[in-house]
Measured scan of single mutants.
Amino acid sequence: GAYRMKIYDRDELRGQMSELTDDCISVQDRFHLTEIHSLNVLEGSWILYEMPNYRGRQYLLRPGEYRRFLDWGAPNAKVGSLRRVMD
């Protein structure tokens, strides 16, 4: 299947937008971000990790809009890595 997600540095799907279609071992290295404040999962399911290298707390992201970090259940906006959930 296809995988696509848009990430934003501000809440409510605002601010600088970056797009992912594959795994990202370090959000900071690739996008120069340490925080993601909202996101829109367009295709596929993903796991968001608090730390790089797929470590730390993890949150399942199904397709849909997440307008603030509380929407995916996190206590803050800190994001380290993102990985696709393969079928």
Score class of each variant (00 low, 15 high):
R4W: 10
D87N: 07
E43A: 03
R83L: 05
E43M: 12
E43H: 12
I25G: 07
V79T: 06
Q58T: 07
L70C: 13
S81A: 03
Y8Q: 03
I36K: 01
M17I: 14
A77N: 08
I47N: 04
V79S: 03
Q58A: 04
L61H: 01
Y54E: 02
R57S: 04
V79I: 11
Y49H: 01
G80I: 01
L33H: 09
R55T: 10
K6R: 11
G56Y: 00
R57V: 04
W46H: 00
G64T: 03
R83K: 14
H37P: 05
D22I: 07
G56A: 01
L33C: 11
L61N: 03
G73L: 09
Y59A: 07
L42T: 06
D11E: 15
H37R: 06
E12L: 08
Y8V: 02
W72I: 01
G73M: 14
L42V: 13
L20V: 14
Y59R: 07
W72S: 01
G73W: 11
R83C: 12
P75V: 05
D22R: 05
T21K: 04
L20Y: 03
R30C: 14
H32L: 07
F69Y: 12
D22C: 08
K6G: 15
S26L: 10
A74G: 14
F31E: 15
L13I: 15
W72Q: 00
L39I: 15
D71S: 05
R83W: 02
V41G: 01
M51Y: 10
L70K: 15
D11G: 13
S38Q: 01
R10L: 12
Y49M: 01
L70N: 09
N40G: 11
L70V: 13
Y8A: 06
G1K: 13
M86F: 15
G73T: 11
M5H: 00
S26K: 15
S45Y: 06
G56P: 01
N40M: 04
V41N: 12
Y3N: 14
V85C: 05
Y59G: 02
E19Q: 14
E12C: 08
D29S: 14
N40Q: 10
D11K: 15
L39T: 04
R30M: 11
L60E: 07
A74D: 01
L20M: 10
I25W: 12
L60V: 13
D29Q: 15
N76S: 12
L82I: 13
I25T: 13
G64L: 02
G15M: 08
R68S: 10
R57E: 13
I25K: 08
K78G: 06
K6W: 07
G64M: 03
E19D: 15
E35S: 05
L61W: 02
P75S: 09
Y49S: 02
I47S: 02
S81W: 01
G56W: 02
Q58R: 06
V41Y: 03
Y54D: 02
F69E: 12
R55K: 13
Y59E: 07
G15W: 02
I7V: 08
R68T: 12
R83Q: 15
R62Y: 07
Y3F: 13
G56Q: 00
Y66K: 08
D22Y: 06
V79K: 00
M5T: 14
E12N: 14
Y8H: 15
G15Q: 10
D22N: 07
Y49T: 02
L48I: 03
Q16P: 09
P52I: 03
Y8L: 02
E50T: 07
T34P: 11
L42E: 10
E50I: 01
P75I: 04
A77P: 14
E19W: 12
R57Y: 09
Q58H: 14
R4F: 15
L33G: 06
L48G: 03
E43I: 03
E43Q: 06
W46S: 01
S26G: 13
M51R: 10
D23L: 01
E12Q: 08
L20W: 14
D22V: 06
R4Q: 13
V85F: 13
Y3S: 13
D87Y: 07
L42I: 12
D71N: 06
E43Y: 04
V27C: 11
D87E: 12
I36T: 13
R83F: 06
L13S: 15
K6H: 06
S26C: 09
L39P: 00
L20P: 03
S18M: 09
P63S: 08
L48Y: 05
E12T: 08
N76T: 04
S81D: 00
R83V: 09
V79R: 00
P52T: 07
Q58E: 14
V79N: 09
R67K: 12
G80E: 01
A77Y: 06
H32E: 09
S38M: 02
Q58D: 13
Q28C: 11
N76Q: 04
R55V: 06
I7N: 01
M51L: 11
M86H: 14
Q28M: 07
Y3C: 05
L48P: 00
Q16Y: 07
T34S: 08
S38Y: 02
R30H: 14
L61R: 03
R84K: 12
M17F: 08
V85D: 14
M17R: 10
V85S: 13
R4P: 00
E35K: 10
R30G: 11
R30A: 11
D23M: 03
G44S: 04
L33A: 09
F69W: 06
W72C: 02
W46C: 01
N76G: 08
W46P: 01
